[in-house]
């Protein structure tokens, strides 16, 4: 084969892409003051912090158990209220349930909007309205869960089998009967699975809401760090990790049974 007949693909595009990428990295590093020098001076600090954090304060575990349980309760209630609100919203956002783009596009826009507001921020705003405590935490988690469940649900609803729906239309069912007997049976199991998944995410979110005063274990996290009681901080982190993993395991088992 003659070498001249093979035309090498142009490298201009890939070179430019690489260049752009490096420019972006450099710009971001400059903006955030991230340098290797900073990292290397930071490493000994990180190591000494880790030394102070070990071992965890074992006695502290029983002390924070009530707060951990409250965190789980907040996550569960937030996921439940969010799931209840998600039922109408996800139906409205499905293009095969409500055919008019006005309805489903509006519902989707609301969902997108809700999902761009971070959970911690929602909690901070609710704390400003309702004062410190669990209520703002549960409300923030409700909105947060609503955004997740409704999005997952409408994407699932759009994939359901149209057969039963057509059959319902053919026998003259009204819209409510149509949804109750044509749609709901097809989506109930998946809905429960998404609810459990959101509950898992909520546990993680609930663990930090206390930082802005919205209840749960996060409050203690802040407190122990401010008092430089790092061994207690380690206890909190370990406890949270164990709770999250146990709940993940349980919900995973339930989900496997459901689907």
């Amino acid at each position: 084969m003659n070498e001249n007949t093979i035309k090498k693909p142009s490298k201009v595009k890939s070179t430019l892409t690489t260049l752009l990428l490096f420019l972006l990295i450099w710009g971001s590093a400059y903006k955030t003051d991230s340098t290797f020098e900073e990292l290397f001076t930071g490493i000994p600090e990180i190591i000494s912090l880790l030394r102070e954090m070990i071992p965890p304060d074992w006695a502290y575990f029983s002390y924070i158990t009530p707060e951990v349980l409250i965190t789980i309760q907040m996550a569960l209630l937030g996921a439940t209220f969010g799931a209840i609100l998600a039922i109408p919203l996800s139906l409205l956002a499905s293009s095969n349930i409500f055919v008019s783009p006005w309805i489903y596009q509006t519902a989707r826009f609301i969902l997108n909007f809700l999902r761009t507001i971070p959970d911690l921020l929602l909690a901070a705003i609710f704390v400003a309205i309702f004062g410190l405590g669990l209520i703002p935490g549960v409300l923030a988690l409700t909105i947060f869960s609503l955004g997740i469940i409704a999005k997952l649900m409408y994407e699932f609803i759009e994939t359901i089998d149209p057969g039963p729906l057509e059959a319902m239309t053919a026998v003259g069912a009204n819209k409510i009967q149509w949804i109750a007997f044509g749609v709901i049976p097809q989506i109930a199991a998946q809905f429960a699975a998404y609810f459990l998944y959101t509950f898992e995410i909520n546990i993680r979110a609930a663990a930090i809401l206390g930082l802005v005063g919205a209840g749960g274990i996060g409050l203690y996290l802040d407190e122990t760090l401010n008092f430089l009681e790092y061994q207690k901080t380690t206890s909190i982190i370990l406890y949270t990790l164990v709770v999250i993993m146990v709940i993940d395991y349980i919900t995973k088992k339930i989900r496997e049974k459901l689907l």
């Binding site: 955030t32 991230s34 001076t41 930071g42 990180i46």
Partner: peptide, 11 residues
């Protein structure tokens, strides 16, 4: 706590 407050900690 380790590298001080700022964007670098976030990164």
């Amino acid at each position: 706590k380790a590298v001080g407050p700022g964007a670098f900690a976030g990164v």
